[in-house]
C-alpha cells in the first residue's frame, strides 16, 4: 500500500467508517511506515477533538420551554380563527341572501325586496359582531368586510 492510499483510509478510520476488508492492509502499512503511523495518531486525535468539542449543554428545561412555545403558537392561531367562525358563517348567510333573493322573493311590491331581507339578517349579524367580547373587535366591525356592497351598507347604516 502506498502512503497516499493509506492517508485516505486513515481519514475513514478516524471517521469510524473504514471498510473492514481494508483494515488488515492498513494496519500492516502502519507497522511498516512511521510517517503514516504518526499521521494515524493525529487523525485519531482530531476525531477525538471533534467528538468532545461539544460542551455539556445547559439545556435543562428546554423540553418544557419548547412545548410551551410550540403549543402556545398553535393556540395563537386557533385564537385568531375560532371567534370568527360563527361571525363568518353569519356573514356567509347574508351574502347568500343577497345572491339568492331575486330568485326566491322577486322584486314586486307584495314580496320582500333584497334590501329588506338583508336588513332582516343585519340585526343578527351586527349583534354577533358587537357582542362577542373579543377586544378590539367592536371597532373593526364593518359590513363591507362580509361582502355587503357599499350601496347596501349605506342603506343599512341610514
Amino acid at each position: 500500500m502506498k502512503c497516499n492510499d493509506a492517508e485516505r483510509l486513515l481519514a475513514d478510520r478516524a471517521l469510524g467508517c473504514l471498510e473492514e476488508e481494508r483494515r488488515p492492509e492498513l494496519e500492516n502499512h502502519l507497522k511498516a511506515c512511521s510517517r503514516c503511523s504518526r499521521e494515524a495518531g493525529l487523525y485519531l486525535e482530531a476525531a477525538r477533538a471533534l467528538r468532545s468539542s461539544t460542551p455539556e449543554p445547559e439545556l435543562s428545561g428546554l423540553a418544557a420551554r419548547v412545548v410551551a412555545e410550540a403549543v402556545s403558537g398553535e393556540k395563537g392561531w386557533l385564537r385568531l380563527i375560532k371567534p370568527r367562525i360563527p361571525l363568518l358563517a353569519a356573514a356567509a348567510a347574508v351574502v347568500l341572501a343577497v345572491v339568492t333573493t331575486p330568485f326566491f322573493f322577486g322584486n314586486d311590491s307584495e314580496t320582500m325586496t333584497r334590501l329588506e331581507v338583508i336588513e332582516a339578517y343585519a340585526g343578527d349579524l351586527e349583534s354577533m359582531g358587537l357582542g362577542n367580547g373579543v377586544p378590539g373587535y367592536d371597532t373593526e366591525f364593518s359590513y363591507e368586510n362580509y361582502g355587503v356592497p357599499e350601496n347596501v351598507t349605506s342603506y343599512l347604516i341610514r
Binding site: S53, T54, P55, P57, E58, L62, R65, E69
Partner: peptide, 28 residues
C-alpha cells in the same frame, strides 16, 4: 435529540449561545 441538535448547532454556528437558541428553534 436535544444533545445532538445542540452539538450540530455548535459545529455549524460556532457558539454555545447561538446553538442554544438554534436548538429551541429547531424543535418548535
Amino acid at each position: 435529540y436535544q444533545g445532538s441538535i445542540f452539538g450540530i448547532g455548535v459545529k455549524l454556528l460556532g457558539t454555545a449561545e447561538d446553538a442554544k437558541d438554534y436548538c429551541q428553534d429547531v424543535f418548535v
